[in-house]
């Protein structure tokens, strides 16, 4: 499988990364190089093999569904590029 300019534009859009027109062509080449190299995996027979879901064999721990921590509004906002009245600020989204 390989990607073209249209596909790269689409995935860049999905990934929310602006890609300039002069960057597109080289990216198509680079991504195809990597995808072609990855293609060798198709020769492995994986019929009946379960995909890995946990790296080491452990059960996920359970805990009571209780609030045990929190109340850090100012710390959470401390690194925000913009904040007002205890909220993050973003560009206007409603016309």
């Amino acid at each position: 499988m390989s990607v073209d300019k249209r596909t790269v534009t689409k995935i860049a859009d999905l990934a929310r990364i602006a890609v300039g027109p002069d960057e597109l062509e080289p990216l198509v080449g680079e991504l195809n190089n990597i995808l072609n190299w990855i293609e060798q995996l198709s020769e492995v027979d994986t019929d009946g093999v379960a995909p890995m879901t946990s790296v080491v064999e452990v059960d996920l721990p359970w805990r009571a569904d209780k609030v045990t921590d929190g109340g850090y509004r100012d710390e959470v906002l401390a690194n925000a590029p913009g904040s007002e009245h205890g909220f993050f600020t973003v560009p206007k989204v409603i016309e």
Binding site: L41, S42, V44, T46, V49, P51, T53
Partner: peptide, 8 residues
């Protein structure tokens, strides 16, 4: 596919 090969 990759996660299956990871199992292998």
């Amino acid at each position: 596919k990759a996660q299956k090969i990871r199992t292998l």
